[in-house]
Structures are given as structure tokens and as C-alpha cells.
Amino acid sequence: MPNARDLQPLPVPPGTGALDVLPALRRALDGDGPALLPVAADAPEEAQRLVTALGGPLNPGEDAEDDPTSLVIATSGSTGTPKGVLLPAGSLRASAEATHRRLGGPGSWLLAVPAHHVAGVQVLVRALLAGTTPRAVDTSAGFRPDAFAAAAREALTSNDPHYTALVPTQLSRLLNDGGEGLSALRGFDAVLLGGAATPPALLARALDSGVAVTTTYGMSETAGGCVYDGVPLDITEVDLDGEPGPIRLTGPMLARGYRNQPGAEAFAGGWFRTGDLGRFTDGRLEVLGRADDVITTGGEKVAPLPVERVLTEQPGVREACVLGVEDPEWGQAVVAAVVPDPAANLDANALRDAVRERLGAAATPKRIALLDELPLRGPGKPDRRALAEQLTC
């Protein structure tokens, strides 16, 4: 038998198969088994890469008898290098219980996002702590509105409050498809939306369509979302170093640190330094994007997220991603990848004019590329490195 405090891989099947990990997850939460490293069962090469980088016995300082490390969530952050986020049982429980308090009490959960990422794991943790039976969407053929509708019909039969979690691309597909998927989505008491920035136009469409969307901000290092609709959960403290300025977070949902990185600076002093920039607007936290995504063009600094928001507010724009690419004249040039609605006939000059009017000349994209879809990484974030390579070719 392996030592109980070894870190053991937990292959997590996609879709409905993810529910098979519930017994192991329960033991990990109770401290009755090894710490678990969730990996995608359908991506064996990537799983082995993570096991090689992160597996083995936990080191001193990576565990505690009174609050054992339950999960190590692999995350590449913005660097692509795998890091293991050490999540004690107490952090997972604190996050899940605070979520239920914010939403109106424990309820039934529908899993629609991959359960080897923190957002999906927390759907299962919340269900376990609520004592309810979670359901899962069949994603064997990708995320499809009809499969979501079928799973939702089963989930909505219980008498508990009904919750699910989505990333913006999933919500967009359900809204665009309409029909049974959207009808089922309206039946949920709360739809947590995270994993990537939510375009304001998408949020407005969802709310206008009768979907009870709650936007979330958080990461693996905070056991998932810890700021809902711009308001911190009752266990979360937010600190900004200036406005706008770097975001720091603390509270009982915080991770123990990183695997094999004792004393990581990101966790110094009991605060997690997110690497994001933010400001408070009307008392709510507004996240402006990654500090290392800020574009320096002609001596001016441009945060991509406000530009993306302006673009996605324009008629016919479904998604947008803004980034800087090397430019001999400007140092970096602001460029945008835009996914149009299928029937849209977009005018790139009109899009640029809209940005210039709202944000000024420096933020105006020098080039706009129309794409069928954005490359994604993780649970649904645009892959900026892949886009940069594509847009500089």
C-alpha cells in the first residue's frame, strides 16, 4: 500500500464518467486516503507529464495533520509550466460552504465543465458537502446544447435549489442555439460563470434571456471562485495596490502553496498575489486582466480586457481577444482576433472606430483578424500564445 500522504494521480474521465471519482474525492476530503492529483483520463500524454512533474510523496510543509492536503490541482497559469496548487480539505470546504451561503443554501449541482480543473472539482465538492447527487453533461462529442438539455432535465427533477457552472463559450453556445438547452438553463437558480473574462454583451444577453448568471472571479490558488458579481464571498478579503492596481486575495479558501516550491513569493504574508490588475467600480471589483498581458505600444500602456469589452459590445461580434505582437515601429502593436456571428458582415474600420471613441488612439487595434473560433486552453481561456503565433505569421 502506498503511504497515505503520497500524492496519487486521479484519472478523471470526461463528461458523465467524472462522477466515478466521487468516492475517491470523498476520502480525500475526509483525509482517509492519499492526496490526489486530478488529471484528464482522455489525455494520457499530458497526464503523464503532470504526474512526472508533480507526483510522489508530499514534502515537509506541503501537508498538515489537522488539515490534510486533499488535492493538488495542476495549473500552467500564464507561463505554460505546470505548477501544483496544494489545496487542503479546509480550503475546499470553506469555498464550497461560502458559495452555498451566497447562492441561497446547499443544492443539487450539474457538472458541465471538466472535473480535473478546479471549477469542475468544486462542483463535485459542493454536491458532496450538500449531501446531494450531482449529475453530469455527456461531453463525448464536445459540449452540445442538446446534451446539456438532457442532463439538465434529470438534474432539475430534485426539490433542492439547482446550480451549475459554465465557461463563457458554453453560455454563448446555449444562447446562440436557443431551444431546449436555453430553456433548461433558465431552470437553474444560479449559473456560475467563470474560467475566462465574461464579455458584458454576453452577460447582458444571458440576463435578458432569463438566465440567473453569477459571474465569478478566482483561480486554483483560491479553491475556485471567491468573488461573485464583483463582491467578495464572506470569507474573502481583497486588496489592491493602487487603483487600478495588482489584486491580492486572502481567506480560509487560500491554497497551502505550490508543490515543490517552498516559500513561493506569490503566497508571501498569507496573501495570494494573483498577477491580475483591478479596480473597484461602484463598490464592485472590476478585473482588468493579467498584468503581464498589458501591451506597451508607442510608450503607452494598454490593458487588453477593456478593448475586448468594447469589441464584444459591437453588433455581430461574438468573441474577441486582444494582445500585443512585436512591431518595429511601436514596440508592440495592439491586434485583435474577433469571432463574428455567422451572418454578420463586420467592418474592421467600424470596430476600430468604436475602440478609438471609447478608449483612445493607443488602444485602437492596428489589425483585426476574423476567425471562426478562438484557440482555448484550460477550462476555456483564450490561448494568447497560440494567437500571437497565428497573428504574427
Rank of each mutant, 00 (worst) to 15 (best):
N159C: 12
G187T: 04
G210H: 05
D189Y: 07
R259L: 02
D241F: 03
G218M: 01
D177P: 05
T164Q: 08
G224L: 01
P199A: 15
A223T: 00
T236V: 11
G242Q: 04
G178F: 10
P168S: 08
A201L: 01
E243Y: 06
R173A: 13
L233A: 14
G230L: 04
L202H: 06
T216P: 01
A206T: 09
L166H: 09
L171V: 09
V191T: 12
F188H: 06
A197V: 12
C226L: 02
D208G: 15
D189S: 11
G179I: 04
S158L: 13
E237S: 13
D189K: 07
R259A: 03
A255H: 00
G225R: 02
L202S: 07
A212T: 13
R256N: 03
Y258H: 03
L175P: 07
R173Q: 14
L240I: 08
S183L: 06
V227M: 04
T164W: 12
T215Q: 13
L192C: 06
Y163E: 04
R153Q: 15
L156W: 12
D241I: 02
L182E: 13
V211T: 10
A201Y: 01
G194S: 15
M253I: 01
D160M: 12
G224Y: 00
D241C: 00
D177R: 14
V227P: 07
A212V: 07
G179P: 07
